[in-house]
């Protein structure tokens, strides 16, 4: 398992560098949507929650797994939806007239 652990640690370290580099040129106006988008991405804990609930054998594990899936789902769907709503208003160079599908 130690070889496996080393592999995981390698992935961890490389991902840390990628995460740091990939947003290093973000413009200030996008700080909020970017934070919100990253927030949705850590909703990936949903698959961890599914694995835990999927493997549950007794009532306690079932309850914990259920709670985890509910929380993670809120994180994922809420996170992507709210980010999209924010970005909807940012559409670059959108045509001014005849573009009235916006909610009032």
């Amino acid at each position: 398992m130690s070889g496996g652990l080393l592999g995981l640690i390698t992935i961890f370290v490389l991902a840390a560098f990628v995460g740091y580099e990939v947003i290093s040129k973000v413009s200030t106006i996008l700080h909020t949507p970017l934070m919100s988008g990253a927030n949705a991405i850590h909703g990936i804990i949903l698959i961890g929650s599914m694995i835990v609930l999927g493997a549950a054998h007794d009532a306690v594990q079932l309850a914990l797994g259920f709670v985890a899936v509910v929380l993670a789902t809120v994180n994922v769907v809420g996170g992507f939806t709210v980010t999209d709503r924010m970005l909807e208003m940012f559409r670059a160079g959108r045509p001014q007239p005849g573009d009235e599908e916006r909610r009032r």
Partner: peptide
Amino acid sequence: FVLSNTLLIVAGTLVGASGTLL
């Protein structure tokens, strides 16, 4: 790391690192 799941590690670390920079 608990679940030995690489996708959780990659995605979590991406957010951890970019969030720190942000």
